[in-house]
Design a binder for these strands. Structure first.
Lengths: 241, 241
DNA sequence: CGGCATCCATTTTGATACTG
DNA sequence: CAGTATCAAAATGGATGCCG
């Protein structure tokens, strides 16, 4: 079962040898949101086929990218989680994700699944952590038929599926195309808010903080990226700090 | 030939739908070094199979990631080159490449091909462009059995295969493992230079500029030994030939 | 030759059935 | 729930064929 390799001593080629096979990076994405059980992963990745998922997990575990762990009683279920190099890998995927928002993500196709966690993961990773000191807030996003929330706690940002259990400081309601159109440069937030395709609910003060944190401008963010001749957008009318 | 898709409206999944298939990203890597002909790509990617390469190229062209262009006479050959989204894609691969240097690149296997352009592409992309203003220099790298050079010209850095045609300001001689060990954190540059596994040839001034530009620490490394202007430096054969 | 298209032997995969 | 086992369909890789 000699693994297929590109046979090149090149960092990118070796990386693809390691994690370039089908489904592998989506497993990483899923685990980036937190530990998950085998069946959670099966649910989250329709079409994967159970034995292929098992193979991938075993491989990633052998390479110390993920770790298999049995939760302490009473939960006692086994979960997979990112580990060591895996956490760094998740971060390395961010620019690729940003690229995808702008170049691979057109309108949503009817057959495509969507979960609010996906954009929230990226948004959470893109938030400038130095902006979050002293901020403690929960933001809920209702996008199309999916709900997720971001939890900002004093320097840490985490993305979660579902409603915020203890209520949210700001609730964002939108349809996917409008929502992903913002970072993609297709949606002008101010316009979208004006015609109701994008709604922010919450106290004015909370909304102001929220708007300050959101990484609306992807252009000058990840590692570098001298922007293309992109059309200049205006952020939603939020007072400067 | 309905393309296989993950069926998820997620930026990463869509990106992988677009460029996640086998060989695609290595084609991007090859074109990141500059336009190449079909046969150049075949040579650079042993094992690809001619029809698969043709498919990939056609697909990438259709998605406006690369462009097919016929060079003006007298060359009159057709080349493929990165285009629009493709250039941004190449940049988005950098973090993945950096990850690979640290986590996917062990010792070189006997059967693996190696070309000096590969690390040079990454190094060139990682150089802080603001450090290069007013700098005009050529650096040649002789790594194992492969030679390549970096050309720094007032804010622009480009990587090329082969020797520098007009001589180099600094020539770096090393074996691959020592060389890639530097960013990976396995090689201490000072030690490697002391025991001759890493040799820098050139005028002291040129070497000083060179060392300033090199992105030696990819991120804060645990055992960080900054490459100060080396204490022991071999000024050997002149830079020009 | 450069630039593909065609034809097969192998691998990978996807979907389902089955087990502790 | 957490996987294995099995098998058909798809993707890959090699070798050739073709055409300017």
């Amino acid at each position: 079962v000699a693994k297929r390799s590109y046979g090149q001593y090149c960092a990118l080629a070796r990386t693809l040898d390691l994690i370039g096979e089908r489904w592998t990076l989506l497993v990483i994405r899923e685990l980036a949101a937190g530990p998950k059980r085998y069946s959670d992963l099966l649910d989250a990745l329709p079409g994967v086929g159970t034995s292929l998922l098992a193979d991938r997990l075993k491989h990633l575990e052998a390479k110390e990218i993920i770790r298999r762990r049995t939760l302490p009683p009473p939960a006692a279920s086994t979960v997979y989680e990112l580990f060591g190099a895996g956490a760094e890998l998740a971060r390395a995927l961010l620019p690729l994700t940003v690229w995808g928002v702008r170049h691979a993500l057109g309108p949503r196709r009817r057959s495509e699944a969507f979960r609010a966690e996906w954009p929230l993961l990226a948004i959470g990773a893109l938030i400038d952590k130095s902006d979050t000191v002293g901020v403690s807030a929960v933001y809920e996003f209702r996008i199309d038929d999916s709900v997720g929330h971001l939890r900002v706690e004093n320097g840490a940002v985490s993305a979660h599926a579902g409603e915020a259990p203890d209520g949210a400081d700001v609730v964002v309601v939108s349809d996917v195309e409008t929502f992903v159109g913002i970072p993609a440069g297709r949606t002008d937030p101010a316009t979208a808010m004006a015609d109701g395709r994008l709604v922010l609910e919450g106290e004015p003060d909370a909304i102001e903080v929220f708007l300050r944190l959101m990484p609306i401008d992807l252009e000058a963010r990840p590692t570098d990226v001298p922007a293309q001749p992109a059309t200049r957008r205006r952020a939603a009318r939020g007072p400067a700090r």
